[in-house]
Amino acid sequence: MLVKSLAAFGLVAPASALLRFGCSQLVIERLDPLVTPGLAPSPHLHQIIGGNAFNVTMDPTKDISKEATCTTCQFSEDFSNYWTAVLFFKAKNGTYHRVPIIPNLGFEGAQGGMTVYYMQDGLANYQQSSKVTAFKTGFRMLIGEASYRSKPQAARFRQITYTCLQTPATRFPETMDFPTKPCPAGIMANVRFPTCWDGKNLDSPDHMAHMSYPETGTFESGGPCPATHPVRVPQLMYETIWDTSKFNVKEEWPETGQPFVWAMGDTTGFGSHGDYVFGWKDDSLQRAMDSPCYVNCPTLKTQSVTAMNKCSVPKTVTEDVDTWIPELPGSSTGV
């Protein structure tokens, strides 16, 4: 599970920690224990990675690192859960097909899933020299708004973007809305979370108010945290590569424009969002953030791709999401 070529990403040896690791798929189904706990099915379909303590309620009083018995992530002490909405292709005839997920460069063999980052200074600062406070047991957050459909709305979230992959190594440019042309190697959906915590609340009613962006600039530019949220935490980032290559024949695209749609019915891309429930075992994440870890980390236990792929949870919502379907899951029920 080592990254084959750090040079491919412009990465050089740092002074401190940056974690970049792969996680296989845990399950794909309509559950969202952060936004709609206890509701099965949830309003739209999600793809989930991480520990197998994931369930419909995710009791915030429980330490999921103690509840889980396996994880789909490379670092076997990480039982956190990470999830996003699922991407669909809408054909000219109005039917939908779920877009498959492929692993990132260097993580070949993983079954679907995402690449996860925990950064001290963002990828632009190779030294990674800042100190950050790891998330605490019970911590959870959300970034993005599933109902947004315009750029002014989405501008509230500074770093939720897309990359149209010309090759698997493409990283720029990034856009806030869906690419409008076929992407030869797929579409990468990038979700970066806020990096300033109020230091008190492990969650908030909207799952966002206890977090903030820097007072000025961005995490990468070293902007200071506001007085209301003074604690600097790692920047959590997701990369999901949606394999849109099999849907790149423009003759099959709807006449109305680009054919990709998020599970909640968003054809603009502005409704992209990500959910996070912390579940690192004991102080393992803080130890990693305080150590000279770069991509791989000798202070953390690493498991094989086979072990990652083996971890899963059974589906609790039974519905067809893997063939051509006439409507998005949930659209006919209003749930």
Score class of each variant (00 low, 15 high):
residue 262 W to L: 15
residue 283 D to R: 10
residue 291 S to E: 07
residue 252 E to F: 09
residue 224 P to V: 01
residue 241 I to F: 10
residue 291 S to V: 08
residue 235 Q to E: 15
residue 294 Y to W: 15
residue 204 S to L: 13
residue 221 S to M: 06
residue 257 G to E: 06
residue 306 T to A: 14
residue 226 P to D: 13
residue 305 V to W: 01
residue 237 M to D: 15
residue 246 K to F: 02
residue 308 M to R: 02
residue 231 V to T: 10
residue 243 D to Q: 06
residue 262 W to I: 11
residue 231 V to R: 03
residue 235 Q to K: 12
residue 281 K to C: 12
residue 261 V to F: 06
residue 242 W to Q: 06
residue 287 R to M: 04
residue 222 G to P: 02
residue 270 F to L: 13
residue 249 V to C: 07
residue 248 N to Q: 03
residue 207 H to P: 00
residue 298 P to W: 01
residue 233 V to I: 10
residue 291 S to T: 10
residue 219 F to R: 02
residue 274 G to T: 01
residue 204 S to N: 13
residue 232 R to G: 06
residue 228 T to P: 00
residue 262 W to H: 04
residue 271 G to V: 05
residue 245 S to Q: 11
residue 251 E to M: 13
residue 239 E to W: 09
residue 276 Y to K: 04
residue 288 A to P: 07
residue 269 G to T: 08
residue 288 A to M: 06
residue 295 V to E: 10
residue 221 S to L: 06
residue 283 D to H: 11
residue 209 A to Y: 07
residue 305 V to L: 03
residue 262 W to G: 12
residue 224 P to H: 02
residue 247 F to A: 09
residue 242 W to L: 05
residue 249 V to T: 11
residue 215 E to A: 10
residue 254 P to C: 04
residue 282 D to N: 14
residue 210 H to N: 14
residue 257 G to T: 04
residue 249 V to L: 12
residue 291 S to R: 10
residue 265 G to C: 12
residue 228 T to N: 05
residue 222 G to D: 10
residue 258 Q to K: 07
residue 301 K to Y: 10
residue 249 V to Y: 07
residue 310 K to C: 10
residue 260 F to Y: 13
residue 280 W to Y: 04
residue 277 V to S: 13
residue 213 Y to L: 06
residue 308 M to K: 00
residue 296 N to D: 15
residue 268 T to R: 08
residue 238 Y to G: 11
residue 209 A to W: 08
residue 255 E to Y: 07
residue 249 V to P: 00
residue 254 P to E: 08
residue 252 E to I: 01
residue 275 D to F: 05
residue 219 F to Y: 08
residue 248 N to Y: 00
residue 274 G to D: 03
residue 262 W to Q: 12
residue 227 A to D: 09
residue 281 K to T: 15
residue 292 P to N: 15
residue 237 M to F: 13
residue 309 N to V: 06
residue 237 M to A: 15
residue 277 V to E: 13
residue 219 F to C: 03
residue 205 P to T: 03
residue 221 S to A: 04
residue 268 T to F: 05
residue 252 E to L: 14
residue 231 V to Y: 04
residue 220 E to F: 00
residue 231 V to C: 05
residue 308 M to L: 06
residue 242 W to D: 11
residue 262 W to E: 15
residue 251 E to A: 15
